[in-house]
């Protein structure tokens, strides 16, 4: 895949480097725990990724102060929060609001419909994105709920509050 010369990244929340780095530091322990738990609970997810287990995905929740870097290699999982000015070279990038991305992970929203509506943006290796989507879609239940449940009632309460906040 080659980048088109006039291709530009979508403008995300205004860059505030200190806030972004602080946010990354706060959420990183949670992300590490969550991704290990998901990998342990859903090992078949990796089979659908096939050759893209080693692809670097950048998941960009445009309304958060940082992006996420995912490399879904079961032997060396990477899932980390990164400031936008330090995002690694991406094999594929997926952009949308945080709530939309959360609902796509849980199949509460349809990815194709979000793409048709222009709420979801995909660049880079389209096959990698399709494989990731199909792998996540074959997971029963809610990944977000499972992740929240790891942190007990406070985790569930935070997730519910997040959803309410985005829906209002």
């Amino acid at each position: 895949m080659t980048a088109h010369p006039d291709t530009v990244p979508r403008t995300a929340v205004p860059a505030r480097p200190v806030l972004a780095r602080l946010s990354c530091l706060i959420v990183q322990p949670v992300l590490t725990r969550v991704v290990r738990r998901i990998a342990a609970q859903h090992p078949t997810l990796f089979e659908r990724l096939g050759p893209h287990q080693g692809t670097d995905f950048v998941i960009d929740p445009v309304d958060l102060p940082f992006a996420l870097h995912l490399r879904p290699d079961p032997r060396a999982l990477v899932f980390r929060a990164v400031p936008r000015d330090a995002v690694p070279p991406a094999g594929a990038t997926i952009r949308g609001t945080f709530l939309l991305l959360l609902e796509l992970i849980d199949s509460e929203e349809d990815g194709d419909a979000a793409f048709f509506a222009r709420d979801l943006e995909v660049t880079g290796d389209t096959e990698a994105v399709v494989r990731l989507r199909n792998a996540l879609d074959d997971v029963d239940g809610s990944i977000a709920e499972d992740a929240a449940a790891m942190f007990g009632p406070p985790g569930r309460a935070i997730l519910a509050r997040l959803r309410r906040a985005y829906q209002t």
């Binding site: 895949m1 080659t2 980048a3 088109h4 006039d6 291709t7 530009v8 990244p9 979508r10 222009r118 943006e121 995909v122 660049t123 290796d125 389209t126 096959e127 994105v129 399709v130």
Partner: peptide, 15 residues
């Protein structure tokens, strides 16, 4: 085939 598909976003917001 997805391996042959590419999307690009441009400065004017078009894709």
């Amino acid at each position: 085939p997805a391996s042959d598909v590419e999307y690009a976003r441009h400065a004017d917001g078009s894709m």
